[in-house]
Design a protein around this nucleic acid. Structure first.
Length: 469
RNA sequence: GGUCCCAUCGUCUAGAGGCCUAGGACAUUGCCCUCUCACGGCAAAAACGCGGGUUCGAAUCCCGCUGGGACUACCA
């Protein structure tokens, strides 16, 4: 492979949104192409007219864009390449490597079930293989003449050498009666036409590979390198699906996940680089390789994704955070303040919120002073001592227009000391007065954001409340 | 049923015959930090599926078993 431009591809079928498993496959292909300085191609496998939809195409494109997996060529659509499939099918026909089959789907189905009942292999019996001409006026399918003996070897980068006996292969349909190609045929033609050098895909395709290799051979095409990546499983170790929770990539966007975090999580599912858990894009590209892909399937673990997301939210550039968070705040009906104030707000919240949604949920007190005090907090924190402290603080505050975090902290501590009240009680009651909660971002950070004036107002309100009850 | 793949803490994984008293991360528990909750720091608990070989020596190699998964469509 030295000196040859690496070309990988992601080839989803547009029968739904981009899901976690597909995204990981796309990521690996993308990473390998980038790592090798090659090209990454996007192809839409829409030969199943029944199930393919325009919306799904868009959903997949949206997902790819959100994950920042840019492609160099495409998207190509199989539905627009019909002439290529027909051309090669006819070539095989002409060369006696394929044949028309007139069996009806129902008959096939019946024979399969019958064979299964008798404990025999449910494969096609090749009864049309040596037909001289049409036996009826049905629209035929085209079947590939699979070799009857010998073996087909798949030298897979992740699975190693896998040997299939050719007698296990059946004469698969390559062109359906409606003229559309089937998957195993279209893939080969496409990968050849698009000069794909490395086929990186889910290992649910491993069993298809010998069939595809036979088609490559029949057409005298060069065989690409295969890398079959283990599947992603749900918590019950069955194939990841909707019942395990969100599987749509875009659902994670809506839940307030950062795409870099999801990508980072995905890259470590089935691939590793020593003990490293956190990778920037650049590191990922630099360090990714096919050799370190694991052989065993991986269980999708939402907890770890959440941890990574929290990490990314905490570490990211405040400007980027504000750009991403803005729409979540607007969706809640909040009027987002000017940039520097908004960033301060977010930075105070990011230590606790693990998703953008969690951040918004914690932010209410920044936008309204019209909140109820937490009942437990009132019981525990609003008493004669804290009332005294609050009054003193209110007075001290009224002298200044603006206060830094540390200046405010000094006031609180000094007050507690002077009044001989525990700092924690003063701070906690103040927190309750200002946020209505017993849990919030750092008190002094909050005050810097909402300002002295508003702080005094809220303290006053709490004093009034305490004196009334 | 047949074919194929897979098998280290609950989970993601490191481990390419001696460096393994099996390492890291998430989650869990405890302690510290502390204005709360987090973050962070420290610590604990937690795994080589089983049985045979090969070898002076096996988590690592081989075989069998068991268990999981995929495929077996005119779906991809």
């Amino acid at each position: 492979m030295e000196g040859i431009m690496v070309r990988t591809r992601f080839a989803p079928s547009p029968t739904g949104y981009l899901h976690i498993g597909g995204a990981r496959t796309a990521l690996f292909n993308w990473l390998y192409a980038r790592n090798q300085g090659g090209k990454f191609i996007l192809r839409i496998e829409d030969t199943d007219v029944e199930r393919s939809t325009e919306e799904s195409v868009q959903a997949i494109l949206d997902g790819m864009k959100w994950l920042n997996l840019d492609w160099d060529e495409g998207p190509f659509f199989q539905s627009k390449r019909m002439d290529r499939y027909t051309y090669f099918a006819e070539k095989l026909l002409k060369e006696g490597k394929a044949y028309y089959c007139y069996c009806k789907p129902e008959e096939l189905q019946e024979r399969r079930e019958q064979a299964l009942k008798e404990g025999k292999k449910p494969t096609y019996d090749r009864r049309c293989r040596d037909l001289k001409g049409p036996i009826n006026d049905r629209k035929p399918v085209i079947r590939f003449k699979a070799p009857l003996e010998g073996e087909t070897i798949v030298d897979d980068i992740v699975k190693g050498r896998v040997i299939f006996k050719n007698e296990e292969l059946d004469d698969l349909i390559i062109i359906r009666s409606d003229g559309f190609p089937t998957y195993n045929f279209a893939v080969v033609i496409d990968d050849v036409d698009m000069n794909i050098t490395h086929v990186i895909r889910g290992d649910d395709h491993l069993n298809n590979t010998p069939r595809q290799i036979q088609i490559y051979k029949a057409l005298d095409f060069p065989i690409p390198v295969f890398a079959h990546v283990p599947m992603i499983l749900g918590s019950d170790k069955t194939r990841l699906s909707k019942r395990h929770g969100a599987t749509s990539v875009m659902a994670y966007k809506e839940m307030g996940y950062i795409s870099d975090a999801l990508v980072n999580y995905l890259v470590r599912l089935g691939w590793s680089y020593g003990d490293q858990e956190i990778f920037t894009r650049e590191e990922m590209i630099e360090k990714f390789n096919l050799e370190n892909i694991g052989k065993s399937p991986a269980v999708f673990n939402p907890e770890k994704l959440l941890w990574l997301n929290a990490h990314y939210i905490r570490e990211m550039d405040p400007k980027d955070l504000s750009d991403l968070a803005r729409e979540f705040f607007e969706k809640m009906g909040y009027v987002v303040p000017e940039e520097s104030k908004f960033q301060k707000m977010l930075c105070s919240l990011r230590q606790r919120g693990r998703t953008l949604v969690e951040i918004v949920e914690m932010a209410d007190f920044y936008f309204t002073s019209d909140f109820q005090y937490e009942e437990q907090g009132v019981k525990k924190l609003f008493n004669t001592d804290s009332l005294r402290a609050l009054k003193v603080i209110r007075e001290k505050l009224s002298n200044s227009k603006e206060l830094s975090e540390s200046e405010f902290e000094v006031i609180v501590r000094k007050t507690a000391e002077d009044l001989n009240i525990k700092v924690s009680l003063v701070a906690q009651s103040l927190r309750l007065a200002i946020t209505g909660k017993t849990v919030s971002p750092g008190l002094y950070e909050i005050i810097e954001v909402i300002g002295v004036e508003e702080t005094i107002r809220r303290i006053q309100k709490a004093i009034d409340y305490m004196e009334k009850t």
